[in-house]
């Protein structure tokens, strides 16, 4: 399945765009998504192990299984306030 992944801040800057598409196997997990992001989008490779990922607006553990159509986002360490 193909998932669209939203990018913010340094991730958006590195990729040069606001989102990227990533292909992973059906029933793939967040861990597999990280690996796929790194190989399919090399500018994000060194970043991807050091950021949190959100699925459907919630921080996601690496074991979480992704459903088709899930809203996924790369969340670099936050700095609001």
């Amino acid at each position: 399945m193909i998932l669209r992944v939203k990018l913010f801040a340094v991730a958006k800057e590195r990729a040069g765009r606001e989102s990227v598409e990533v292909e992973i196997g059906d029933g793939g997990t967040v861990r597999e998504l990280r690996a796929a992001l790194a190989t399919q989008h090399p500018p994000l490779a060194d970043l991807i192990e050091r950021v949190r990922l959100a699925v459907n607006n919630e921080y996601a553990r690496d074991e979480l299984v992704l459903a088709p159509g899930a809203e996924v986002a790369v969340i670099p360490p936050v700095s609001g306030g």
Binding site: A9, Y59, P77
Partner: peptide, 26 residues
């Protein structure tokens, strides 16, 4: 809020460079 809310700031330094602030990211 500073730990969990997905909001980011970018420093526009006086020397003309810019930098996203990501605490803990090397």
């Amino acid at each position: 809020i500073k730990e969990v809310v997905p909001i980011w700031k970018r420093e526009n330094w006086a020397d003309g460079t810019t930098e996203w602030v990501h605490p803990g990211l090397a």
